[in-house]
Amino acid sequence: MRPITYSRATDPQSAVATVSADPTSDYLAGGTTEIDLLRQYVLQPRRLVDINALPLAGIESTPEGGLRIGATTRMSDAAAAPEVRERFPMLSEALEKGASPQLRHMASLGGNLLQRVRCSYFRDPLAPCNKREPDSGCSALTGHSRDHAVLGTSEHCIAAHPSDAAVALTALDASVHTLGPGGERTYPLDDFFLLPGDSPHREHPMAHGELITAVEVPPTPVARRSLYLKVRDRASYEFALVSVAAALSVVDGRIADIRVALGGAATKPWRARRVEDFLVGEVAERRAFAQAAQVELAEARPTPMNAFKVELAQRALVRALGTLAEGTGLEDGSPA
């Protein structure tokens, strides 16, 4: 780890002023990405500004019935909050299935959104990687790409977005509130995460020094019946091969409202709008789910190593929606 200086922020404005003024500075929240990647020389800030003492933690209901979750709210606190569990089970489950208990106690929700990809080439400073070092090339394209994305890829980057929570938040039409040198801003989450295109090093539209202050989840009645399905090799403590955040409301056998997003399979939390558009008004049955999933994955661009994700994502979509349609609780654990 390179030498760093440390500052503890006491008010958001000073934190923003400090980081904005210095391109070699980063915020430090939970540290689970920042310290890890600093030690590996993937990130090389000269200065860290600790924002943990800022009054940015906490969950409050909005007057409309949504939630405003402070940026430094810990994953475990957000997952356990009764209002999250009751109104947005998919978000609670996505948070619970992320990382490990210790990491969930550390990681902030804002940091979770900004966590960096798990691509082994991105995390290896000796390997070419356009995301880490623009124009150095993408090693994954011809390398080991089992864990990589099949949707939203470009010829410059195929790394999958690693966050579980962001998948649920994307399905829920959440928005990100920030404070920057120019003032406060709000981004719809689907616009907040950028596709790699030809600039995979740009992952979000924020300016340097812009600070996430909160994530707002709008009232979403359909989300009361929702789930997060995470498919992974290990039974716990692993990033998703494929995941699905889904909410479904069925009225008289037909789908009245639906929210779906995919994780693990795309370069950003992937709102499955084609699935949603296909299914609204349809009969809630397996065949329709399968057709919708096929439509969503039609534009998948896999590598030979991750081609299975195209099929797996479709099956996971069908499983998630089928489970909601049956009205049974969904468990991805073994029936042991």
Binding site: R118, S120, R123, D124, L126, A127, G143, H144, D147, D233, R234, A235, S236, Y237, E238, G333
Partner: peptide, 28 residues
């Protein structure tokens, strides 16, 4: 779970951390 391969060409291991070289956890 346990799997590693050398990267063609560079000869470096694909997985060189306990985050990606998967060993069983308690839940497994």
């Amino acid at each position: 779970l346990e799997s590693n391969r050398m990267r063609p060409g560079t000869g470096r291991w694909t997985h060189a951390s306990l985050g990606s070289y998967l060993v069983a956890v308690n839940a497994d």
